[in-house]
Design a binder for these strands. Structure first.
Length: 908
RNA sequence: GCGGCCAUGGCGGAAUGGUAGACGCGUACGCUUGAGGUGCGUAUGGGGUAACCCGUGAAGGUUCAAGUCCUUUUGGCCGCACCA
């Protein structure tokens, strides 16, 4: 890696003369051991202290941490260490999202048992995380693949089942015929399985579901109570839940007793209906034309486009005329009934009425099948009864009467026309009016639909939590009795054949029915791994509880999580599931808590430049080096093509290994760089020069403070300034103190606002101010006699500044800060030292330099006492030569003085 | 298509409507060093010898004052996507 030679702590003889060089490895290890031996981060409930729960999304134990983890856990650690210093009882736990597919793939590829593979990975990753110096209470560590963990969710699932939250139903799934397993929608690429490349089949399977739809309204409504969530995530969840209001009502079919029920969010356009359309898999479609050969052809055409929704999207609108007519409930008019490929069975009622004039899809469909287009909304505010041609109509309205020549549907606002009693109403009033009318005539009702579907939790996988159910031919589905929990995974399985090994395990699968004792079989599906991650934040509150998932009072103390941190990729799934789970647990009596995370922060990705060799093969950053302006390969100096800065990924090899970084530059430098370069919500570009810059700063701080020691008064057993009468402060001392206290305020505010890059900038600013005084020539010393203190007050202020600096840097660079704290003469640990408080008296500047503008253009700068009145400011400003020059030939009309900000002279 | 976010030096980024560019990276020059690196110092938005002029994607507007607020527009990123 470029710059790797920087790390070696080779000692220049000259260096040893002045100060000892900072030995990163030794020092960082020393302090981690100190914290560990003192259990610095171990917490228990303490009713006298206010708690603060910091949680980062727990990692999947892939075996190695990546830079995204480093960013995630550094951000959390800054918050945790800061809150701890502020006096909160901080819980900051860690664990492992340990079930999932990669373990099974490893088993298939390498013949290693998922259990062994996972636990080895956990061990390695735990070591890596520990080397970051995180303030984690490791005594609370959990792994979701341990029966000690998942036994509780089996019990929970049984409670859900009893309370009607869990149920079983048949549904359509993506089935990979080679792997013999269900695939998630994301795992289907162009209609083929992502691993096998085999065309995915649509299959009907019996699956377990959780009734998240019962909570749709609450999940939506309580988003309003989450002000400390990113707006973006709330909007994404809102869209995902997809609530819409409308009218549901029935159409009679001519010559039949059958009815077709439809849902619409645009009941106002009912008089513009020109056809009905059914989903292809609507029961009525089958019934009406299931036998007809043309219909079968049509169905085949529908499926040709692929199975995933995305594949269907650009497809042409296709329809099949059933030949039937339906009667308009208000007009008595007859309109045709089609089956159409763009109607989804699982939204609304699976049937619609089409209004081509005001819906783009209906418009395309009507155009293709030559159906009437009947405009009922006039974009002009003019009377709908006499639709006089208005200039607007040409541009945005239906171009001509009866929609002839119209090229697209009009979906904007307007006034109802051609609609009997609705004429002249605006859209919103018309909606309500027609819902009232339908309710009055006893056909239909105003209702609400959700886009959210119930959560299918069954997976045909081995490495997951077994679903604690038994299938008995006589009794049907029978829950595993609680005394038989947990249902543990059998260890003796093989992965030499495709499919779920649980299916092939004779003694595990075949059991007696708990109810009638006859032969039965176990449910062989396991839970979706989002199941485990939906409640782990509760388990951390009471991780060793054998009888319960967690004690209610412990959860009551620690929950909810004040600050949750993770990637935005979980904005919907995990975060929605966890919110739902919390509410479901609440309704089953597990807790009183309704929302698991009151504060959420979503971090950006980590990116890196990409490199390719002459043949286009991707190169690791460690395989290339800079040669002048260009990059060449390390191996043979061949030219390297430098590509875009994109998210780190193994496929493009633009990754750096945190373990290399940590051992080369140390945890503090890595943490500092990650915090300082970009605002945490944005993408972070990992650069070699950036990490080197951070590393240099770590060394600089160590050197600077070591060199300043002879200038400082003794710590006197306490932090300077805490005890004893204050000396009379010199001007320099006051300036330094003001800078110090301003920084205390600023850094605290920045950390609380997650502006870590700004917090780092302020720490650097303070250290720049301090370094002014750490040299011969500073007023602290006699000119020429570098180490004799003259200005005692400045020496005192310098110690105050340096100690403050060390405390403020602690959340970012905890090892270095702890080391410097000791160097400064303290016998206590910095990790137990409270955050300083800014002295309000020192936050007021003595004098301020402000700009003077003439007609908004800057012409001079003036320095005023901060308590100067407006008149003084005005006079000083007008007296400035630059101002006078700009005013030549002009008359002053007005002078605006904003105290402490600006003076603006308006002249003309 | 719908919804959201963003746009500031060579780069990452700072700026309660009030001195645009904090802090850092990079670069240049000088000092230190046997050399390289480290360290230290100075400079660094553009133009101009200078006075000064121009500058926050573009165009308008509000205001004494706009990177910030409003309207229009361009480009990029993200989410959802036949949701009736």
């Amino acid at each position: 890696m470029p710059g790797v030679n920087l790390c070696c702590n080779h000692q220049n003889p000259k260096d040893t003369m002045t100060t000892t060089r900072y030995n990163i490895k030794e020092t960082e290890t020393k302090w981690r051991q100190a914290w560990e031996s003192r259990d610095s981060f171990r917490v228990t409930e303490d009713s006298k202290k206010e708690k603060y729960y910091v949680l980062e999304m727990f990692p999947y134990p892939s075996g190695r941490i990546h830079v995204g983890h480093v960013r995630n856990y550094t951000l959390g650690d800054v918050v945790a260490r800061y809150r701890k210093a502020c006096g909160f009882n901080v819980i900051h736990p860690m664990g492992w999202d340990a079930f999932g597919l990669p373990a099974e793939n490893a088993a298939i590829e390498r013949g290693e048992h998922p259990h062994k593979w996972t636990h080895e990975n956990i061990r390695m990753m735990r070591d890596q995380l520990k080397s970051m110096g995180l303030s984690i209470d490791w005594s609370r560590e959990i792994a979701t693949c341990d029966a000690d963990y998942y036994r509780h969710e089996q019990k929970m699932f049984l409670d859900f089942y009893r309370n009607g939250i869990a149920y079983r139903k048949e549904s359509m799934v993506n089935w990979d015929p080679v792997d013999n397993t269900v695939l998630a929608n994301e795992q289907v690429i162009d209609g083929k399985g992502w691993r096998t490349g085999a065309p995915v089949e649509r299959r009907k399977l019996n699956q377990w579901f959780l009734k998240i739809t019962d909570y749709a309204d609450e999940l939506l409504e309580s988003l309003k109570n989450l002000p400390r969530w990113p707006e973006k995530v709330r909007i994404m969840q809102e869209n995902w839940i997809g609530k819409s209001r409308g009218l549901q009502f029935k159409w009679n079919i001519v010559g039949s007793s059958e009815q077709i029920e439809v849902f619409t969010t645009r009941p106002d356009t009912l008089f513009g209906a020109s056809f009905l359309a059914l989903a292809p898999d609507h029961p009525m479609s089958q019934k009406l034309c299931g036998d007809k050969p043309e219909f079968k052809k049509f169905l085949a055409a529908c499926q040709a486009g692929g199975t995933s929704e995305v594949a269907i999207e650009p497809a042409e609108k296709l329809g099949h005329d059933t030949g039937l007519k339906a009667t308009h409930p208000l007009l008595g008019r007859e309109i045709p009934v089609y089956v159409a490929n763009f109607i989804l069975m699982d939204y609304g009622t699976g049937a619609i009425f089409g209004v081509p004039a005001h819906d783009q899809r209906d418009f395309e469909f009507a155009t293709k099948y030559k159906l009437p287009i009947l405009p009922v909304i006039s974009p002009s505010p003019a009377s709908a009864n006499a639709p006089a041609p208005s200039p607007l109509r040409e541009r945005e309205g239906p171009a001509k009467q009866e929609g002839e020549g119209q090229t697209e549907a009009y979906t904007g606002s307007g006034t109802l026309m051609n609609s009997e009693f609705l004429n002249g109403l605006d859209i919103e009033s018309a909606k309500q009016r027609i819902i009232d009318e339908c309710e009055k005539i006893g056909n239909g009702f105003g209702t609400t639909q959700f886009r959210l579907r119930d959560w299918g939790v069954s997976r045909q996988r081995y490495w997951g939590c077994p679903i604690p159910m038994i299938h008995c031919e006589k009794c049907g589905v029978v829950p595993v009795p609680e005394k038989d929990l947990p249902v543990t995974l059998p260890p003796d399985v093989t992965f030499d054949k495709p499919g779920n090994p649980l299916e092939r395990h004779p003694t595990w699968k075949n059991v007696k029915c708990p109810s009638c004792k006859s032969d039965a079989r176990r449910e062989t599906d396991t839970f979706d791994t989002f199941f485990e991650s939906s409640w782990y934040q509760f388990r951390y509150c009471d991780p060793k509880n054998e009888n319960l998932p967690f004690a209610k009072d412990k959860a009551a103390y620690w929950m909810p999580v004040e600050q949750y941190i993770g990637g935005v990729e979980h904005a919907v799934l995990h975060l929605l599931y966890a919110r739902f789970f919390t509410k479901a647990m609440r309704d089953c009596g597990y807790t009183e808590v309704s929302e698991p995370f009151t504060g959420l922060f979503t971090q950006g990705m980590v990116t890196h430049e990409t490199y390719q060799d002459e043949k286009g093969a991707w190169l690791f950053p460690t395989d290339v080096k800079k040669d002048g302006e260009k990059f060449v390969t390390v191996k043979d100096g061949k030219p390297v093509k430098v590509g875009g800065i994109v998210k780190m990924s193994k496929s493009k090899k633009n990754v750096v290994d945190p373990e290399d970084i940590l051992s080369t530059y140390g945890a503090d430098a890595a943490r500092l760089f990650i915090l300082s370069d970009s605002p945490p919500e944005r993408d972070l570009e990992w650069t070699e020069s950036g990490i080197e810059g951070a590393w240099r700063y770590v060394n600089k701080l160590h050197r600077m403070i070591n060199e300043s020691l002879p200038l400082l008064p003794l710590p006197n057993g306490e932090r300077a300034g805490v005890r004893g009468p204050l000396p009379e402060f010199s001007k320099e001392a006051l300036t330094l103190r003001r800078a110090t206290h301003k920084t205390i305020k600023g850094v605290g505010e920045d950390i609380e606002a997650f502006a870590m890059n700004k917090a780092v900038a302020k720490v650097r600013e303070l250290s720049n101010a301090i370094s002014e005084h750490c040299h011969p020539g500073s007023p602290i010393c006699h000119p020429g006699e570098s180490r004799d203190r003259v200005d005692e007050s400045l020496a005192w202020a310098l110690r105050e500044s340096i100690e403050t600096l060390v405390i403020l840097m602690n959340p970012m660079m905890p090892h270095l800060a702890e080391e410097l704290w000791e160097i400064l003469g303290h016998k206590t640990l910095l990790v137990e030292t409270p955050w300083p408080k800014a002295d309000p008296a020192l936050l007021v500047q003595e004098s301020v330099t402000i700009g003077v503008q003439v007609n908004g253009k800057l012409r001079a700068q003036i320095t005023l006492p901060s308590n100067a009145d407006q008149k003084t400011a005005e006079q000083t400003a007008l007296g400035e030569p630059g101002v006078q020059k700009a005013l030549e030939g002009l008359q002053v009309r007005k002078v605006i003085v904003v105290p402490g900000r600006i003076v603006n002279v308006v002249a003309g």
